[in-house]
């Protein structure tokens, strides 16, 4: 019978005492920490000083994945773990990806309709938000002792044509 039989193996290879564990050398742990700190610096630097538009996100995620991999492999001992544990982790990541990608696939389906609607109804500000905030703001102002008589209850500011979501997204990158 060729099937694995862990129970029997445990009993056969049984010799009281320590479970099979891998002790990670301290030098390796310290080296990983230094690498992680360098990568943290790098991610701040690339995000703040280099401007590649949407690619900034990609770079940040690549660096984060590299950091994550180091933590998993060395701090979490995955390099020396049983295969099952790696499978558990990878399966979880695959399913997260599946979940996000399929939900996202669907979310942009109506983007054109939304944009057309926005073009036809140039009121960018959802009324719900400002009124929701106004309900709470007088209390807050009262708490802080402000003279809220002065606050006019005008509705939301008029929207501007130039502020469509596409432009809004692009503008900061230009700067």
């Amino acid at each position: 019978m060729s099937h694995s039989n862990e129970h029997a193996e445990h009993a056969a290879g049984h010799d009281h005492g320590e479970a099979h564990q891998h002790v990670v050398p301290l030098s390796l742990l310290s080296g990983i920490l230094v690498l992680l700190l360098i990568l943290t610096g790098l991610t701040v630097f690339t995000a703040r000083e280099l401007h590649f538009g949407e690619w900034n996100l990609v770079i940040a995620m690549i660096i984060a994945c590299a950091k994550g991999t180091l933590v998993v492999l060395y701090f979490m001992h995955m390099r020396w773990e049983k295969m099952f544990n790696a499978i558990a982790l990878i399966t979880a990541l695959i399913f997260v990806t599946l979940f996000i990608s399929v939900s996202a696939l669907d979310s942009f389906q109506y983007e054109d309709n939304i944009n057309n609607y926005r073009a036809a109804n140039p009121t960018r500000v959802p009324q719900a938000i400002i009124s929701d905030a106004e309900v709470r703001a007088p209390e807050l102002a009262a708490e802080t002792g402000a003279d809220h008589e002065a606050a006019p209850s005008t509705p939301a500011a008029p929207a501007k044509e130039s502020h469509e979501s596409g432009d809004g997204a692009a503008a900061p990158h230009a700067g």
Partner: peptide, 19 residues
């Protein structure tokens, strides 16, 4: 039966939980 069996189970459970 053995410490190794106990440790393996515990790690396995923990990784599944981390998933």
């Amino acid at each position: 039966d053995t410490p190794d069996q106990q440790n393996t189970s515990a790690k396995m459970g923990m990784w599944a939980f981390l998933g």
